[in-house]
Design a binder for these strands. Structure first.
Length: 366
DNA sequence: AACCCGGGGCC
DNA sequence: GGCCCAGGGTT
């Protein structure tokens, strides 16, 4: 940390703050969560923005705020409705934790989002970034909010060569931002850093020529802006073969399954499916056995309708899709029978939305 | 410290 | 196809 301190000692911190904040106040984008400083709105936006781009978040944020405009609304909302509002955003534990935390605020803080680091950081799903971001933006408290954007910007400003993929590296950047941050306008400072990372100091082609803080940038001075930040590579995803069944009965009902409350895609709904293995049995036979022995339904399956590929960060699903007609259901089935109308209210992962889209394109088959 | 947890858009 | 994104929780 000593070398970082020496770099900071050589910086014109007041000038950097001024140039950054001045630029941010002029050039900031109009975004729905910037309409006011309502801590609940800021909080929801920060959770949605975790690992998710601004353009993706905007429509979700607007719909979410229409449905759950206050802490009380979200605290008392039906969990399935909340999941449905998050459908397609990914990282679904974010919204499960958010609702749990908002319930805590409703019950223990009279619905007022706490304004101290100690209290706010204890809430579910609130880590060092989110607590710093919400407390600075909504309550104007001078805490660092170090995300990927900020690590990229600061690694260039100070010419820091530590691997930002390593967890402990974030401490170096929190130390640096803690010394750089404006005590007068911490909200504008933090948002300015992130805005700069999004608009100017981008990963592969930083626009240094028009950067408002280019005269403060060590990487530019050294000509190494394209080499920073240093980030080690992640391993490639592994592939899994799956088979899934879109099942109807003669009354037109669908049969769906709720995923477990932990792990991948927790609490979301899906068409019954299993991981298939190469061997003597065909995929269709494995799926038939699974439906009968595990899922608790007997069904006649058609031929392979098609395949879906879905890529996660660490995983690839190759799903063979079959359509089928349910002939009998056991009492202890793990499937839920729903009408096609009711089906619309259940939150499905995108992979299974793709399967449903296949079914809608072949209505004669089902 | 390493791994898990989604999805989309850009190059 | 690889990389990145306004990260946090679990082990």
């Amino acid at each position: 940390m000593k070398d970082i301190q020496e770099k900071l000692d050589r910086k014109d911190i007041a000038g950097f703050q001024h140039d950054l904040i001045d630029w941010y106040e002029k050039e900031q984008r109009t975004l729905p969560w910037r309409e006011n400083q309502d801590p609940y709105r800021v909080w929801v936006s920060e959770v949605m923005l975790q690992q998710t781009r601004v353009d993706t978040v905007i429509p979700y944020f607007n719909r979410f705020m229409e449905q759950f405009p206050t802490v009380k609304d979200l605290a008392l909302a039906d969990e399935e409705k909340v999941m449905k509002a998050w459908e397609g955003l990914g990282y679904y534990s974010r919204v499960r934790n958010l609702q749990a935390a908002v319930k805590e605020v409703y019950e223990s803080y009279e619905g007022v989002v706490p304004d101290t680091k100690e209290q706010f950081s204890k809430l579910k799903g609130v880590g060092p970034y989110t607590s710093g971001a919400v407390l600075s933006i909504a309550y104007n408290k001078p805490y660092p909010a170090v995300d990927g954007n900020v690590m990229r910007v600061i690694s260039r400003i100070l010419s820091i060569w530590d691997d930002i993929a390593k967890p402990k590296t974030r401490n170096i950047f929190e130390f640096a931002v803690d010394q750089l941050i404006s005590r007068e306008k911490p909200s504008e400072f933090n948002q300015g850093l992130m805005e700069l990372g999004a608009l100017i100091c981008t990963p592969t082609s930083p626009a240094c020529l028009i950067c408002p803080v280019n005269m403060h940038c060590s990487a530019l001075e050294e000509g190494v802006q394209h080499e920073l930040p240093v980030k080690s590579k992640k391993k490639k995803p592994t592939a899994k073969s799956m088979a899934a069944a879109v099942l109807f009965d003669d009354a037109g009902n669908l049969y769906i399954h709720k995923r477990p409350s932990t792990g991948l895609l927790a609490n979301l709904w899906e068409f019954p499916n299993l991981e298939t293995i190469k061997g003597r049995k065909t995929e269709k036979e494995q799926l038939m056995d699974f439906l009968k022995e595990e899922a608790g339904v007997q069904a006649e399956l058609g031929d392979l309708e098609g395949t879906i590929q879905h890529v996660f960060t660490h995983l690839i699903w190759n799903i063979s899709v079959f359509f089928g007609r349910v002939t009998s259901v056991s009492d202890d089935t793990m499937l839920k029978k729903v009408t096609t109308e009711e089906f619309e209210a259940y939150a499905l992962p995108v992979s299974h939305q793709k399967i449903w889209k296949m079914a809608l394109e072949e209505p004669s088959r089902i």
